[in-house]
Simulated scan of single mutants.
Amino acid sequence: MESWERSRRRWQHAFFASWLVLTSAGPVMEVSQVLPVVLVAGLAAWYAVWFVLRTPPAGEVPLPYVVGGGLLWLGLIAIDSSFMVVCLSVLVPYCMDALRVGLVAVLSCAGGWLWHSYHEGGSITWTEIAITALIAISAAASVGYFYSVARQSAERKELIDQLQAAQEARAVAERQAGVAAERQRLARDIHDSLTQGFASVAMLLEAAQATLPDNKHLTQALQAARENLAESRRVVRALRPGQLDECGLPEALRRLSGRLSDETGIDAHTVITGKFRPLEAEAQAELLRVAQEAVANVRRHARAEQVTLTLSYMEDLVVLDVHDDGDGFDPGRAASGHGLSIMRERMEQLGGTLLVESAPGAGATVVASLPAVALSGAR
């Protein structure tokens, strides 16, 4: 597309140069003065400044160019009225992009040519009118053709840009789906191998301990097996949050706040706002993990009385807000903390953001947001 644009610019420059020569060569030779040559050269240089040294976007009309070109054209007309048609050269850069400007240029030049003929000869023949009309119609058809080609190319470029954006969004979605599928596979493999193995080892050690209750090494081995069993289950839950498979993100958040209330006595509840829409599996999992980490921080540090989890479905993003009225903290000092870093990394991996607002004695608010590219789970 860029090579086509360069080619279009070259044709525009050739169009300008040819029309400038065509419309000014005859009058310059007839007048036989130096000033018209200087003004025509100035018009060519003025065009080069605005359209060769710099390339304004298609359809843009630089007002300084129009004013400067118009003044040079008026200077030529003041010398000799036969320079009337040079007006078309001034407006040539817009004949390919702006249909109305091109048609105005054609009509102005046709009218100016007839006026010049009348001024020179005192009358206009029907033959001159017919020839001028035919030339004007041909020029108008050329302007319309150039405009249609430029418009079609612009529409094609827009379609290509939309296609590229759709392909990029699809690639991101496929990559996220692949990551989610791999996490699911790892969760199944760990559950079916390590977790089941540790469970079997723990059961065998419990049976052995029943016959040898005072064996120190047996007791230590059983404790290690139970710890590793719990750790493998934690890894499986981290890879594949079971709540999401069962009920989806809104209900998983409600259960999370419900468990917090039941286990600690904190007044915790979940609020859902906006029109619900399905999310990508990975986006749901990461938002849930952020909520779990924020709630875990409340349990350990906040000494809060109230906690509110708010999930907001907006037009172009989804926002999770976890607010507590606890002791608060200095976000600057806590920014390097492992938990906050993990939450921030989770959001950034999906193109989202994580904000933490808090102050000592003023509670804390964790805000996680994901953009539209990570949201739609429907295909």
Rank of each mutant, 00 (worst) to 15 (best):
E2Q: 14
S3R: 12
Q12C: 10
H13E: 08
F15A: 13
W19R: 10
W19N: 15
L20I: 06
L22K: 09
L22D: 12
S24W: 04
A25F: 14
P27N: 12
V28N: 14
S32E: 12
L35Q: 13
P36Q: 08
A41M: 11
A41Y: 05
G42P: 05
A44K: 06
A45I: 10
F51N: 10
V52Y: 06
L53R: 10
R54L: 01
G59C: 06
P62Q: 01
Y65T: 09
V66M: 03
G68A: 14
G69C: 03
G75D: 08
G75T: 05
F83T: 06
C87M: 07
L88T: 14
V92S: 04
P93H: 06
C95A: 12
M96V: 01
L103R: 04
L103G: 04
L107G: 13
C109P: 08
G111P: 15
E120T: 12
E120H: 09
G122N: 08
T125R: 05
W126E: 05
T127W: 12
I137A: 11
Y147M: 01
Y147I: 04
R151F: 07
R151D: 10
Q152S: 15
E158H: 15
D161N: 15
D161G: 15
L163V: 15
Q167W: 05
R170T: 11
A181I: 00
R185V: 00
D189V: 08
Q196H: 05
G197I: 00
G197T: 05
F198Q: 07
A199I: 02
A202E: 06
T211L: 10
L212E: 12
P213D: 04
D214K: 02
K216Y: 08
Q220V: 03
A221W: 00
L222P: 02
L229R: 01
A230S: 12
A230H: 07
A238F: 06
L239H: 01
L239D: 02
E246I: 04
G248A: 01
L253A: 01
R255Y: 04
L256W: 02
G258W: 02
S261M: 05
S261Q: 10
D262E: 11
I266S: 02
F276C: 00
A294M: 02
V298W: 00
A304N: 00
Q306V: 11
L309P: 01
L309V: 09
L311R: 00
V318P: 05
V319R: 04
D321W: 01
V322T: 11
F329L: 08
P331T: 03
G332H: 08
M347N: 15
G351A: 07
G351L: 06
E357R: 07
E357M: 07
A364R: 11
G377S: 10
